[in-house]
Computed example of a mutant assay.
Amino acid sequence: MTLSIPGFDHVRLPGAGGVELAAEVGGSGSPVVLLHGFPQTHLMWRHVAERLAGEHTVICPDLRGYGASDKPAATGEDVYAKRTMAADVVALAAALGHERFALAGHDRGALVAFRAGLDHPETISHLGILDVVPTLDMWNVLHGVPAAVGYHLFLMAQPPGLPETMIAASADAFFGSFLDAWAGDPAAIPAEVRAEYLRASAAAVPSIVADYRASAGVDVTHDQADLDAGSQLAMPVTVVQQDWGAQLGYDAAAVWRAWAPDLDHRLTKAGHFMAEEAPDEIAGAIRDLLAR
Rank of each mutant, 00 (worst) to 15 (best):
K269I: 01
A260P: 13
A254H: 04
W259R: 15
D264T: 15
W259G: 01
A275W: 00
A252C: 01
A254D: 14
P261H: 07
R266T: 09
A275G: 06
T268R: 04
P279F: 02
E276K: 00
A258M: 00
M274E: 03
G271H: 07
A270F: 10
A278K: 02
L263K: 06
D262N: 10
R257S: 15
A270L: 01
A254N: 05
P279E: 09
A275F: 01
F273V: 12
D264S: 15
K269N: 07
A254F: 07
G271K: 10
M274K: 02
A270R: 10
E277F: 09
R257K: 15
M274N: 04
A270P: 07
A275N: 12
T268P: 02
R266N: 11
D264H: 03
R257A: 14
K269H: 10
R257M: 12
A254R: 13
A260C: 09
D251H: 09
D280Q: 11
E276T: 06
D264R: 11
H272D: 07
P279M: 09
A278S: 05
E277D: 14
D280C: 14
R266L: 05
P261A: 07
V255H: 03
W256K: 12
P261R: 08
R257Y: 04
H272W: 09
H265L: 14
A252G: 05
A275Q: 15
P279Y: 06
A253M: 03
F273P: 00
W256Q: 10
T268N: 06
W259H: 14
W259P: 02
P261Y: 12
L267S: 01
R257N: 05
D251W: 11
W259T: 00
L267M: 02
H265C: 14
A253F: 02
D264F: 08
V255A: 03
V255L: 03
E277Y: 11
R266G: 05
L267F: 05
A278T: 07
D262Q: 14
W256S: 11
H272M: 06
A252M: 11
L267Y: 05
A253S: 01
L267E: 09
D251P: 02
D280W: 07
H265V: 10
W256M: 08
A253W: 10
P279G: 04
W259F: 03
R266E: 11
A252W: 00
A260E: 12
D280L: 10
A260M: 03
F273D: 03
R266P: 06
A252Y: 02
W256P: 14
H272Y: 13
L267A: 00
D264I: 11
A253D: 15
A270H: 10
E277A: 11
A252F: 08
W256L: 03
A260F: 08
H265N: 07
